[in-house]
């Protein structure tokens, strides 16, 4: 639970009294390697913080699983668009190693937003962060070469190369596994 408090406190300050209202609404949920956290087509009920393990966000396109993102220790996890819109998830969220997530249900988070100004502020700040992350990635996808995309990833999240299969990273970088391994050898 310290994980949840310290994660929220990266954005806003919580008093002990605030925390006592928030803490009971977060639940630990375990998934084994390969398990669906939120399958595409279902409405995401949870907003998660990763306690341990690595998760993958992907969608199915023309016979391939296209990987669009990863989550790991301390990051957010879940199908956020579905969580917010209450519409079926477009993406599959899967555990790619044994995973423990700490999550809050949609209705509980909404209640915190309406009852606690500080939590509403927290909600706005994470949304801004997610939006900026998405915008940066979109620009990189459209403007950078395969080689530059690889370099950015190594720079920003070097640990991913150890945690995730080459196939998934290649898919995430929009390149063939062959191109990926060529770039990797070059370094």
């Amino acid at each position: 639970m310290d994980l949840v408090r310290s994660t929220i406190q990266r954005y806003v300050d919580l008093s002990d009294a605030d925390w006592q209202r928030i803490a009971p609404l977060w639940h630990e949920r375990a998934f084994t390697k390969g398990a669906h956290i939120c399958p595409a087509g279902e409405v995401e009920q949870w907003f998660y913080i990763v306690k341990s393990g690595v998760q993958r966000l992907s969608f199915f396109h023309e016979g391939n699983d296209v990987c669009v993102g990863f989550a790991y220790d301390g990051s957010w996890c879940g199908e956020y668009a579905s969580f917010v819109s209450r519409k079926p998830a477009r993406f599959d969220v899967k555990a790619i190693s044994d995973t423990v997530l700490v999550g809050i249900r949609h209705e509980d988070l909404q209640r915190l937003y309406s009852e606690m100004k500080i939590m509403e502020r927290f909600g706005r700040l994470i949304l801004e962060e997610l939006l900026i992350g998405r915008a940066v990635r979109e620009v990189e996808q459209l403007s950078l070469s395969a080689e530059e995309r690889y370099d950015r990833l190594v720079q920003r999240s070097p640990q991913l190369l150890q945690l995730v299969s080459q196939k998934d990273i290649a898919s995430y970088l929009r390149m063939t596994p062959e191109t990926f391994s060529r770039l990797r050898r070059r370094r």
Binding site: R29, A30, F31, T32, K33, G34, A35, H36, K94, A95
Partner: peptide, 10 residues
């Protein structure tokens, strides 16, 4: 064998 199927969770 769940490890060869869809994994397991809570």
């Amino acid at each position: 064998d769940p490890a060869r199927n869809a994994g397991a969770s809570l």
